[in-house]
Amino acid sequence: MQVRLPSLNAIRAFEAVARHLSFKSAAAELHVTPSAISHQIRLLETELGVELFIRRANSISLTEAAERMLPQLTAGFDLIRRTVAPETISERERLLHVTMLPTFAARWFLPRMQRLHHQNPAFRISIDASAEVVDFQQSRFDCGIRNGCGNWPGLLADRLFGEHLTPVCSPRFLRERHNDFAARPMLHIQTRPGDWPVWLATAGLTKNSSNEDIWLSSRSLAIQGAIEGLGYALADPSFIADDLASGRLSSPYPKVHSASTGTYYLVYSEDSLRNHAFRQFRNWLLQESVAYTAQTINRREDGSLRRHPPPVPGVG
């Protein structure tokens, strides 16, 4: 005789609550009220004749019965998603909201967007170029590109690549001031105060702060400031290859690179892995990062990114 199954809505509610250990988070995921989730859980406990959660004043935990059920139910729902996603994925799920740093967006991501759409024609993406720290649980964003050490509490992070920085400036600025590097202004990034000290130590140089130094909110602004002749900016030559090739920027120390104090990461919550569009985006991004890293290493080794302006005293 076929066994009657409990309500599928109740099972879905249980799986979400058990995964989040939160009625509120489960309700947000399923787009219902917390009271509706509570009703479904009570219904399921009645149908099964067992308690599923140990309820405390400010938290819940799983009973032994719930711990046995959760892995199989999660796997079952994942199988359903993988089976029907290509045919029934909604427009909401196809639109991916991504926050990323302005420099990364302008100088790395946008030049590669055509390849993303070529591989995934139905894919749609909304980009917010900002350095603002985002709470993925409380915002519309599915993921972000951030620069740091890879440790964001409660989030998963995939390493993309690091930066190798060298000073750049406008050719006119270099012609006029190349013999007096130590006295000329530097363009600093407010969120990356360690970049210049690391590079100076790598180059074996010392340079005191100047009243002419400028602090800016992003590397994109620093690069543009260098183009405008405001001072020296630190940049990865791979990010400014077109500017170097066109002569908008020059590199006074083409052989001296320092590792950036941060690394680019794709940052996301575990829930994002359930989003078909995010999984497509993540796979593409990791593939592009591997190819970019290999290409950058080869270009640094063969010197194709190096430009040789008039010599600057102090560095060979």
Results as ranks from 00 to 15, higher is better:
Thr263Asp: 11
Arg94Trp: 11
Leu200Ile: 09
Leu101Phe: 08
His20Thr: 00
Gly154Leu: 01
Leu221Ile: 14
Arg274Gly: 14
Leu43Phe: 05
Gly229Met: 05
Ile297Arg: 12
Gly231Glu: 02
Gln295Glu: 13
Asp180Phe: 03
Ile54His: 10
His97Val: 13
Arg56His: 15
Pro237His: 01
Tyr232His: 09
His117Cys: 01
Tyr264Lys: 06
Glu15Ile: 09
Arg107Lys: 15
Arg12Lys: 12
Arg82Asn: 11
Leu266Cys: 09
Pro254Lys: 00
Val312His: 02
Ser25Thr: 03
Ser260Met: 04
Val168Met: 07
Gln114His: 14
Thr166Asp: 01
Pro71Phe: 03
Gln224Ala: 13
Lys255Val: 01
Val134Lys: 13
Ser220Gln: 15
Ser38Pro: 00
Arg175Ser: 10
Arg140Cys: 08
Tyr268Glu: 07
Pro193Ser: 07
Pro6Leu: 01
Leu200Ser: 05
Glu288Asp: 13
Gly316Val: 12
Leu101Pro: 10
Ser220Asn: 11
Arg274Gln: 15
Ile60Gln: 01
Ser272Trp: 07
Ser130Pro: 12
Tyr253Met: 08
Val133Cys: 01
Thr206Gly: 00
Tyr268Leu: 04
Glu93Arg: 13
Gly150Met: 05
Arg81Pro: 00
Ala183Pro: 10
His188Pro: 04
Cys143Tyr: 08
Arg107Ser: 14
Val290Asp: 05
Pro311Tyr: 02
Leu5Pro: 05
Thr293Gln: 13
Phe104Gln: 10
Leu70Ile: 05
Arg4Tyr: 00
Ser269Ala: 14
Pro153Cys: 00
Asn208Ile: 02
Gln280Ala: 12
Pro111Cys: 04
Ser304Glu: 04
Glu301Ser: 04
Ser139Ile: 06
Pro6Met: 02
Asp213Val: 03
Leu216Gln: 13
Asp242Glu: 14
Glu51Tyr: 03
Gln295Gly: 09
Phe104Trp: 14
Arg107Ile: 12
Gly225Asn: 10
Gln2Ser: 01
Asn9Glu: 10
Tyr253Phe: 12
Ser7Cys: 02
Thr166Phe: 04
Ala277Ser: 15
Asn120Leu: 15
Ile11Cys: 02
Glu87Arg: 15
Asn9Thr: 05
Asn208Gln: 15
Gly194Ser: 11
Trp199Glu: 01
Arg82His: 12
Asp302Val: 11
Ala182Tyr: 02
Val290His: 11
Leu101Thr: 15
Glu15Val: 13
Tyr265Asp: 07
Arg124Asn: 09
Val267Phe: 08
Thr202His: 05
Phe77Trp: 07
Ser218Val: 07
Thr263Glu: 07
Phe161Thr: 02
His97Ile: 09
Leu273Met: 08
Tyr268Thr: 06
Gln190Ala: 11
Val98Tyr: 06
Glu15Pro: 00
Gln280Gly: 04
Glu93Ala: 13
His164Trp: 14
Met1Leu: 08
Phe77Arg: 08
